[in-house]
Structures are given as C-alpha cells and as structure tokens.
C-alpha cells in the first residue's frame, strides 16, 4: 500500500481566512464519509478553521477553487472521471481516501469479468428482470471497461488508507495539513487486524 508521500507542505493562503475543503464519493459506499463524520464534536473545532466547498454534506454541485480535496471511491464510469478531473483542476492537494480510491476496492471486483458479462447478468439474465434491456439513456454515464484507482488518472498527493479510514485518521491528516506539517499517520492508525 502506498503510504503518505513527501510533497510540498500545505500552507493556508492569505486571501481566505479559512481553508477550503471539498469532498466527493465516486464509486464508493459513502462509508468513508460516514467515518469522517464519526469525528463527532471535533467537527465543531474543525469548522473554525475550514469551510466546505462541493461535498455531499452541503450538496454544493460544483467544486470551487479549494485547498484540499478528499476523494472517496474508485473510477467506474465517465462521470467519475469528470468529477475527479474537476477536483484535480480546482484543489491544491488531492487525498485518495479509503481502499476503493487507493486500489479499486470492492467495485474493482467486477474487473474479473467483462463489462458485457456484468451488464447481461444485471439487466438481462437475472431472475425476475422485467423488460430486459441494457439501459442506454444518454443521461446515464457509461461504465469504464475496468474499475481503476484514482491515481491512474490524476496525480494524487496523499493517501489515507483504510476501509474506512478511522475518524482519528481524518482528524490527524487534516490537523497536520492545517498546522503546516507533512502528514504522517502513526502505525496504530494503519493497523486493521
């Protein structure tokens, strides 16, 4: 597993009093976001220093220029790619959060099959399928042949492993960045057995 790597240390910009953070879940289960909220009352202290741009927490639809982007989930469709690129274009620091973003995780289990096999199983062959056809509405984003971790498409600055990463790990990595330190997670936060 890739660990936190040395990049330029984040510093708070002078123009904005608060550090701006955006978050999103691509092909993920929102479990990482739930774990983020598990920091409980500590989020009050955090909000004294940060404000949220695009995030499922506030339902803002597009990412504004930000300091930190937290990305949960892998890339499974064209929309995921657009969202990820929007984040990369707007965030100074991108953090890959959780097993799916880092190495594909559960969504990547479909990589053992062809896309055709997956769609036929779900929409044609499964018992109880009504009106069997593979959905082709233009509103529906097309699926990628294979599920990919996000670092294969954009540059990722830091990796926060775990399924999900514990709330303490979110607090630690954000605190380190807010205080201008190179993030570093102690071994206890990287141990899952």
């Amino acid at each position: 597993m890739k660990q936190l790597k040395k990049r330029e240390v984040f510093t708070v910009s002078e123009s904005s009093p608060k550090v701006r953070v955006a978050t999103t879940s691509l092909a993920g289960c929102f479990g990482c976001h739930m774990s983020f909220l598990d920091m409980d009352e500590r989020i009050v202290g955090l909000l004294e220093h940060v404000e949220f741009s695009r995030s499922p927490i506030n339902d803002i639809k597009h990412c504004e220029p930000c300091d930190i982007g937290l990305i949960e989930g892998a890339l499974c469709n064209a929309d995921n790619v657009h969202v990820l690129k929007e984040f990369r274009d707007n965030c100074k620091i991108i953090i890959a959060v959780g097993a799916c973003a880092i190495n594909g995780g559960v969504p990547a289990m479909r990589n053992h099959f062809t896309l055709k096999e997956c769609l036929e199983e779900a929409f044609l062959d499964e018992i109880g399928v009504d009106n069997p056809h593979i959905p082709n509405d233009v509103e529906i984003p097309l699926l990628l042949n294979k599920v990919h971790p996000i670092h294969e498409v954009v540059k990722v600055d830091y990796y926060l492993p775990g399924c999900p990463p514990p709330a303490d790990a979110f607090v630690k990595i954000l605190t380190d960045l807010l205080e201008g330190r190179e993030p570093s997670l102690p071994k206890e936060m990287l141990h899952y057995d």
């Binding site: 064209a78 055709k116 082709n136 984003p141 042949n145 990919h148 294969e152 498409v153």
Partner: peptide
C-alpha cells in the same frame, strides 16, 4: 492517465449503441 480513457468506454458504447458527446 495510465490508460486511454476514451478507449475504456468502447465496450459500454457498443453495448448501449451510444455515440453521443457524453459517451
């Protein structure tokens, strides 16, 4: 990117017969 993004949609395009801009 480490792979060709557009080519990675090829199988889905042929399964759905789509060739619109979003595809």
């Amino acid at each position: 990117p480490e792979f060709n993004l557009d080519a990675s949609l090829e199988e889905a395009r042929s399964l759905t017969n789509r060739d619109d801009a979003e595809a």
